[in-house]
Every structure is written in structure tokens, then in C-alpha cells.
């Protein structure tokens, strides 16, 4: 069979062919030539939507299709590793010359240095797919985290989840940028970094992320005025300084129609007292199990309970609007 003249096909047919290929196959095909790469880029809006998970620590970029059945892993290495693999071939990715070796789960890319390789692959993927980016849990501790985020913010790129530690090693300008950009981020996770010296950075909300906010670190800066502006459906904030009375106000606020998107709420507090002011009309010690509450208009129901010494309100809404 003679070689197939793929690029002679009408554009719509070509787009349909690209659509039939898996993420990994499409990525490998895009390396064949600049012309093919351009055609694949032209078909971007016609292509599958991909979640791109950045694992800077392991030098790995995972590209997953939204249904989870199709994924490809791209590893980037500095050029020094190339000599070990005689199958490496020379290609061009985002104007950067690289060597690449196919592996069953994806592809290994060898570039001048890790940063250039990682950024080139990301730029290449952004042209190929409608991407939603996510950063791994420990990415924020890597040097590459800041230049990558800066570039992606400049491109107004959507994010699935950003995880960032509030630690002095993370530039405050980058943190400010992240917090000002949350309107395009579905979920923000701030892990606990108790093993590191604390940061003096205080997050500024709104904007809030579009769906999820998870804060495990010190949240003594959180006031009700700030919290009541939250539009997330999943709120999990630990280590606040909110006292019993304030925690009671949170539930009152929800009953009056506040937190309109809320599906799950968990607030931890260092100032919670089991024998302190009543919450929902009862001293917390008197709570036997979960209490069911309802909004004033009767449209939503929630179950509230207290867990451990810190007050943790674990609100699981039942019924409407889900």
C-alpha cells in the first residue's frame, strides 16, 4: 500500500480523522510535520476536551480526556538523558527542537532543559486541545511553578484545580495573581504547610474559585463578611478563629438564602467551645447527632453535625437544586 496522502483530504474529513484518534496518537501525529501539526491545531475546537495535569516534581504531564477513558503521559527530560535511548528521534514542539521516544503510555521528550521542555509541551498541547489545567499537590514547591502559572495566566487559561501553599518561598506577586485570577479556576486548594515557616500573605477574596475552596492552613484571617461573599458549591476551610456565635450566624445566613450554590460546607475553628454559646439554639455539648435544618423558604434541607473538638460543620444538603 503506498503512503496515504493524509493532508490531501478535505478539512472536515481530516478533522473527523483527528477526532477518531486518541490523545496520545494525536500528539504523536502532531510531531510528524509542521503542516500536520497546523491542521491538528486548526481542528482544536472540534477536538476532545482534555484535562492537563501538571506534575512538575515527576516531570510528567498527564493529558486526560474528560470521560477518563483516554489518557497520555508526557515525560520531559534534559537532553543529557538522550544518549541512553538510541530510539530518540528529532522533532519540533512549539518551535523548540526536541528528541522524543514513544512509550506505551505516552511519550518521553528530551529537551535542552526541563523548563524549556515542560513549557514547550504545554504550549503545544494548548494549541491542540481545549485544555483545562490542574497543578499537582506539591507543584507549588517547584521553581517551574511560577513561570508556568505566569504564562498560563497571561493566556487567560482555564484551570481545573490549583494547589498552592501559603509559604514565604512563593512570591507574593504570584499569589496575588492567583487570587485575582480565581474566576477562571474551578477549585483552589491551600494545603497545610505547618512543617514550614508560615507566610505573612493574606488571601484576598472575592473572586472565589468557581466551585471548590479547600483551605487546610491557618485561616485566622477569615471573617464572616468575607465568607458570605463565597459563591462556591464546596467550601472546606479549617483553622479559622470563628467563635460559636459566628458559626451559628453562618447557618442563619444559609437559612436566609445565603450561599446559593452550596452543596457542602465544613468550617474548622480553633475558637469553638463545646460548652460555649449555643449553635442552632443548643449548646454544642447537648447535640446528640446531626441536626436537620431547612432554609426559610423551605426549598433546601441540610444536615449539620459537629465532629471532634474543633467545630467542624459538615453540611450535607439534601434535596433541591442538585
Amino acid at each position: 500500500m503506498p503512503p496515504f496522502p493524509l493532508l490531501h483530504l478535505p478539512q472536515l474529513v481530516l478533522f473527523e480523522v483527528f477526532k477518531s484518534l486518541s490523545i496520545g496518537e494525536k500528539f504523536k501525529l502532531s510531531l510528524c510535520s509542521k503542516k500536520i501539526s497546523t491542521q491538528i491545531n486548526n481542528a482544536r475546537l472540534y477536538s476532545q476536551k482534555a484535562v492537563v495535569a501538571l506534575d512538575i516534581l515527576r516531570k510528567k504531564i498527564s493529558v486526560l480526556c474528560k470521560n477518563g477513558q483516554d489518557n497520555c503521559e508526557i515525560f520531559t527530560y534534559p537532553n543529557s538523558g538522550k544518549s541512553r535511548d538510541s530510539n530518540a528521534q528529532q522533532f519540533s514542539i512549539a518551535c523548540c527542537s526536541v528528541s522524543a521516544v514513544s512509550i506505551p503510555i505516552g511519550i518521553k521528550i528530551f529537551c535542552k532543559n526541563h523548563e524549556e521542555g515542560f513549557l514547550s509541551v504545554i504550549r503545544h498541547l494548548l494549541k491542540m486541545f481545549q485544555c483545562k489545567m490542574s497543578t499537582g499537590r506539591y507543584c507549588w514547591r517547584q521553581e517551574l511553578f511560577q513561570p508556568i502559572l505566569t504564562e498560563l495566566f497571561d493566556l487567560q487559561q482555564e484551570f481545573g484545580t490549583i494547589t498552592v501553599g501559603l509559604h514565604e518561598t512563593v512570591d507574593h506577586n504570584v499569589l496575588n495573581r492567583i487570587f485575582s485570577y480565581l474566576g477562571l479556576v474551578e477549585g483552589l486548594e491551600i494545603p497545610s504547610v505547618n512543617f514550614l515557616p508560615p507566610s505573612f500573605f493574606i488571601p484576598i477574596f472575592p473572586p472565589w474559585p468557581r466551585r471548590r475552596i479547600i483551605i487546610e492552613s491557618n485561616s485566622s484571617w477569615l471573617t464572616l463578611d468575607i465568607l458570605f461573599t463565597c459563591t462556591c458549591s464546596y467550601i472546606d476551610i479549617a483553622n479559622t478563629n470563628l467563635e460559636n456565635k459566628k458559626l451559628d450566624e453562618i447557618l442563619t445566613h444559609w437559612k436566609a438564602g445565603g450561599f446559593p450554590n452550596l452543596e457542602y460546607l465544613q468550617i474548622g475553628s480553633t475558637k469553638f467551645k463545646r460548652d460555649g454559646d449555643p449553635i442552632l439554639g443548643m449548646v454544642p455539648n447537648e447535640w446528640e447527632d446531626q441536626i436537620t435544618i431547612r432554609t426559610d423558604d423551605g426549598s433546601k434541607t441540610a444536615e449539620v453535625h459537629i465532629r471532634r473538638n474543633n467545630l467542624v460543620m459538615d453540611t450535607l444538603l439534601i434535596g433541591l437544586n442538585f
Binding site: P2, P3, F4, P5, L6, L7, H8, L9, V13, E16, V17, K19, S20, L21, S22, E25, K28, L29, L31, C32, S33, K35, I36, Q89, F91, A100, S102
Partner: peptide
Amino acid sequence: YCCERIARMLRGKNTQEMIKVITLP
């Protein structure tokens, strides 16, 4: 079906093998 048939020519191949299967104009 035609598109699927073309995609099948490329399936399971690495970049070098794909280059052999297709003509670059």
C-alpha cells in the same frame, strides 16, 4: 467509516511509523 479506516492506519504507531504511513505534501 472512511475516517475510522484512516484513523486505523495510524493507531498504535509511534511518530516514526506514522511518518512512513502518510505522505507529507
